[in-house]
């Protein structure tokens, strides 16, 4: 029978725990590692004018519309051991395919459009004159970015990071295509649930992991709500 009680956690098998920890680790690493790139890309798209901006914007958003399996396969072509960049990375000792680090890369790529979208909106909402004011007060562009633009965009950055984290937890298609479904290395909660549903008697394990997935998602959402509210209070706009 389905058991939603907290005591069900106690019944989690070591294999299930491994999947949970792996999922959290992959999602956290994917989110933190893509954060600087996401912030930079969002700011560039929001504030700069440069040739090929539409194309850059398109490429950033591609993982959102492509079938995840296609994205995973492209990653395999590019970053696989014999891939275009993968071969070079392998030479300097970085192997991504069939490793948890590769899963993190796949999750980061899949979450990137969501992250950039939220952050870009946040940067665009900043009154340009605040940045100009900083400039007339002697702040160079870089100082203006770190002292004015970035702090004011914090609510959007938090939302973007949470979205990317949630996406990473749920990522399945690109991950399984790029790094397969290796227990203890690349088998995340999603992949584990899928595996359990494919074997006789696995329903109970699948259900326990489902409860955990729901719990993690809820905690992430509530945390984001709280952080966002705190940040918004701090940067409350003057009207």
């Amino acid at each position: 029978m389905l058991d939603f009680s907290p005591s069900a956690l106690a019944d989690l098998s070591p294999a299930e725990w491994t999947a949970i920890w792996l999922s959290l680790r992959i999602a956290t690493v994917a989110t933190i590692a893509s954060l600087p790139f996401g912030i930079f890309t969002a700011y560039a798209l929001a504030r700069w004018r440069f040739p090929g901006k539409t194309i850059v914007n398109g490429i950033v958003h591609l993982p959102l519309v492509l079938p995840p399996v296609v994205t995973g396969f492209i990653l395999l072509i590019l970053l696989g051991r014999k891939g275009v960049f993968g071969a070079f990375l392998a030479d300097i000792g970085i192997v991504l395919s069939f490793r948890w680090t590769g899963a993190a890369v796949a999750c980061a790529v899949m979450g990137f459009p969501l992250m950039v979208r939220a952050m870009r909106l946040s940067f665009e909402a900043i009154d340009r004159r605040l940045e100009l004011a900083a400039g007339t007060l002697g702040a160079s562009r870089i100082w203006t970015f770190f002292l004015v633009s970035l702090p004011l965009a914090i609510p959007g950055i938090v939302v973007g990071a949470i979205l990317a984290f949630a996406k990473a937890l749920g990522e399945f298609g690109a991950t399984i295509t790029f790094v397969s479904n290796i227990p203890g290395e690349t088998q995340t909660i999603s992949a584990a649930i899928y595996t359990y549903t494919q074997v006789p008697g696995g329903d109970e394990s699948a259900m326990r992991l489902t409860v955990v997935a729901i719990a993690i998602a809820l905690v992430a959402l509530i945390a984001s709500e709280i952080i966002q509210r705190m940040a918004e209070k701090r940067v409350a706009s003057i009207e």
């Binding site: 004159r129 100009l132 004011a133 400039g135 007339t136 007060l137 203006t144 002292l147």
Partner: peptide, 28 residues
């Protein structure tokens, strides 16, 4: 502009909303 050392007071004050009055004053 940031090297000109020219202060500009706008029509609407454009204070930095995330900084206190003191931090705003000390910014420049």
């Amino acid at each position: 502009m940031h090297r000109r050392r020219i202060g500009l007071v706008f029509q609407d004050s454009n204070l930095f909303p995330h900084l206190s009055v003191r931090q705003n004053l000390l910014f420049g």
